[in-house]
């Protein structure tokens, strides 16, 4: 239609506008123009900071000399850094598994509550996820407080000895994981609840006719139907948990003996507090390959399942 109209217009009147019109008529041009704002945002807020961080990590401490991969080399040979790598992986993997398990269980419980009462419970269970984490972590810190722990006060009522929540390495590790699970489990719950609601009821009916037990229904219907959403939420949560900062910063500041440091808190300590910005940048960039490995395996699983379904 557009072509026929342009053909009707005398050739002299349209040498300039026709090329613009042609450009505008191209689908790819329009698509590019419409995505340009997003591209600008990504360039400005993702590509540039990432590139700048890589550049920073290749400078000397005074930032006046290009030293290549020296900062990474130094980190690889450092005991504390490997503690941070272990703790970050332990924290992220343990917390995500716990969040997924609790979220799945809560979603199941909610799914079986009548719709009328479900809203009330759903709202209440979402509260931890809605409160700003720095604020809720401060509340947890008061409960864990080395000297005035309210949790220990409750334990004392039952004659249980006081627990050094933040002072003893393994308790400190467990404490930060508990707070992360408390904060993040509602996200899993709401995602899994949505996924559960989309599983066709007929499948369960057919299974019931075949005499499947509740475990068999879970194992052979619910889990396969939810596999993709489980994978995606786990990947998303792994990324967020891996990069966690505020919980450890507020609760332990990485202590005792650096045993609760995560990449973000250690990078802040090395980069900002200790005035070694290039090394801090190198610490934080170490997250990338680890997250890439996690993402590769999880997304590969999702793709395989999608292909099987097609």
């Amino acid at each position: 239609m557009a072509d026929s109209m342009s053909a009707a217009i005398p050739a002299v009147a349209q040498p300039r506008s026709s090329s613009l019109q042609k450009l505008a008529r191209r689908r790819s041009s329009i698509a590019f123009l419409m995505t340009l704002p997003l591209i600008c945002v990504i360039l400005g807020l993702v590509v540039y900071p990432a590139g700048y961080a890589i550049y920073l990590s290749m400078l000397s401490r005074r930032m006046d000399e290009f030293v290549g991969l020296t900062q990474y080399d130094i980190l690889i040979e450092n005991d504390t850094f490997w503690l941070v790598v272990f703790q970050s992986c332990f924290f992220a993997v343990t917390a995500v598994i716990a969040k997924a398990a609790i979220g799945f269980w809560l979603a199941h419980m909610l799914h079986h509550i009548p719709t009328k009462g479900q809203r009330k419970w759903r709202g209440m269970l979402l509260v931890p996820w809605v409160i700003p984490p720095a604020l809720s972590t401060l509340g947890w810190w008061w409960m864990y407080d080395p000297t005035y722990s309210s949790l220990n006060w409750i334990l004392a009522i039952f004659a249980v000895p006081a627990v050094p929540w933040l002072g003893e390495p393994w308790w400190a590790r467990v404490s930060v994981i508990i707070v992360n699970v408390w904060y993040g489990a509602p996200f899993f719950m709401i995602m899994y609840l949505a996924a559960l609601k989309s599983v066709p009821e007929q499948l369960y009916e057919a299974a019931a006719i075949d005499g499947a037990s509740s475990w068999q229904r879970l194992r052979y219907i619910t889990l396969p139907m939810m596999q993709n959403i489980i994978s995606i939420t786990v990947l998303f949560s792994l990324i967020v948990t891996f990069a966690n900062y505020d919980i450890v910063r507020v609760l332990t500041n990485g202590g005792p003996r650096d045993l609760t440091h995560l990449f973000a808190t250690y990078a802040f300590q090395v980069g900002i507090l200790s005035g070694n910005i290039p090394r801090g940048a190198a610490v934080s960039l170490f997250m990338l390959p680890l997250l890439a490995i996690f993402a590769f395996f999880i997304l590969r699983g999702v793709n395989q399942r999608n292909k099987e379904m097609m």
Binding site: D145, P164, L166
Partner: peptide, 10 residues
């Protein structure tokens, strides 16, 4: 025994 976790306010 918990001084290992004390901050500047403890």
């Amino acid at each position: 025994n918990d001084v290992w976790a004390w901050d500047d306010a403890s």
